[in-house]
Amino acid sequence: MNYTINQLRIFLKITQTQSVTKASEELHLTQPAVSIQLKNFQDQFEIPLTEIIGRKIFITDFGKEIAVTAENILNQIYEINYKTLAHKGLLTGRLKISVVSTGKYVMPYFLSDFLREHEGIELVMDVTNKSKVIRSLEKNEVDFSLVSVLPENLQIEKTELMQNKLYLISNTNQQFNDKIYDKSILEELPLIYREPGSGTRQTMEIFIRENKLPVKKKMELTSNEAVKQSVIAGLGCSIMPLIGIKNELQNGQLQIIPVKEFPIKSVWNLIWLKGKNHSPVALAFLDYLKNEKENIIKAKFDWFERY
Results as ranks from 00 to 15, higher is better:
9 R>H: 10
170 S>L: 09
288 Y>H: 06
169 I>A: 10
272 W>C: 03
182 D>I: 08
173 N>F: 08
62 F>L: 15
188 E>I: 05
152 E>M: 12
278 H>Q: 10
66 I>P: 01
261 E>A: 09
42 Q>V: 13
158 K>M: 06
178 D>W: 00
55 R>M: 12
77 I>D: 06
301 F>L: 05
306 R>A: 07
213 L>Y: 03
167 Y>D: 03
40 N>C: 09
236 G>V: 11
225 E>R: 02
86 A>V: 15
19 S>C: 04
16 Q>F: 05
85 L>F: 12
135 R>N: 12
42 Q>L: 12
71 E>I: 05
82 Y>S: 11
281 V>I: 11
189 L>K: 14
265 K>R: 14
13 K>P: 07
25 E>D: 14
235 L>Y: 15
124 V>W: 08
242 L>R: 03
300 K>A: 01
57 I>M: 03
171 N>P: 08
59 I>G: 04
123 L>A: 07
82 Y>D: 15
267 V>C: 05
21 T>V: 14
45 F>G: 11
119 E>L: 07
229 Q>P: 00
130 K>T: 12
57 I>H: 02
208 I>D: 04
216 K>E: 07
89 G>Q: 14
254 L>P: 03
119 E>Y: 00
291 N>V: 10
194 R>A: 08
244 G>D: 14
205 E>P: 05
57 I>R: 09
31 Q>M: 11
101 S>A: 11
